[in-house]
Amino acid sequence: MSSWCQLLLREKTIIRGKWHGNRYEIVRALGKGANGNVYLVKTADGSKRALKISAEWQVLQSEINVLQTLHFSNGHRYVLDADEFELAGELCAFYVMKWVDGCDLRTYVQHHGRDWLVPLGTQMLRQLRELHLQGYAFCDLKAENVLVERHGRLQLIDYGGVTAFGRSLRQYTEQTDRGFWRAGERIASADYDWFAFAMICIDCIVPKSLQQLAAKPHGERSLATLLQLVEQETALVALRPFLRGALRGRFGSLDSALVAWQSMRRQTTVMPLPKSFSSWLKITFACSILLFICTILYVIP
């Protein structure tokens, strides 16, 4: 369906909400998904926000409804304003949220190294757990819907797929969907999210092998072939115990995925260290030896 709302709005375009009267000035486009365009906007007081517009107002309203029933641990409201405006006689619905100034997870890990996967994964699992405790699953979990800001602060975006446990999925993405991999039902549950989470991890580390597997015909995709990939790829060795559990749906309580993930932190080398990091380690090690010698020489009489 082509519509005015799907056109890219130009810089300096003013949007004024029909019901609440708030004014937003478009700064630039932030991204585009299946359901909407997201823009960086300036509010009347000059602060920057993200604004999501959709021509399909029911779909957007349904996303807003879910967001408004959820509680976020930081106590903030996710939807800061929800309104609509007319563009060439057509209704365009929008909502305003916090601007996350970052890039998507895959890009971040590619640029900053695999070491980041463990702390980022922890944050992701915590945010998922927060949803799960309220009886909802995120469902449409994929790298594009995970933004990472400076200092490796992670934020899930796009709550359009969020679905109450036990209900059928509203939105999902083939590559992370366990139904696509013929590994389970398309019903919202914590297991469903953990499967998708595992797929994101695999995709961050061995993207090529995963793509090859995903390109196979329907009949050749299965949980078994995924598990085989996990066993074969040496780059996945540290993640193996977690991935096995997540792909098989073997985690019991809502805490167990996070616990399993965090237990990896205690292992010595999670993944091959990038050079810069290991040389930094050597320096630290050298310093501590020096300090030790100094201690012996000076402190001990």
Binding site: L169, F180, R186, H218
Partner: peptide, 9 residues
């Protein structure tokens, strides 16, 4: 088969 997977959920 894929459609049915959606419907049965």
């Amino acid at each position: 088969a894929d459609l049915l997977l959606n419907l049965r959920a």
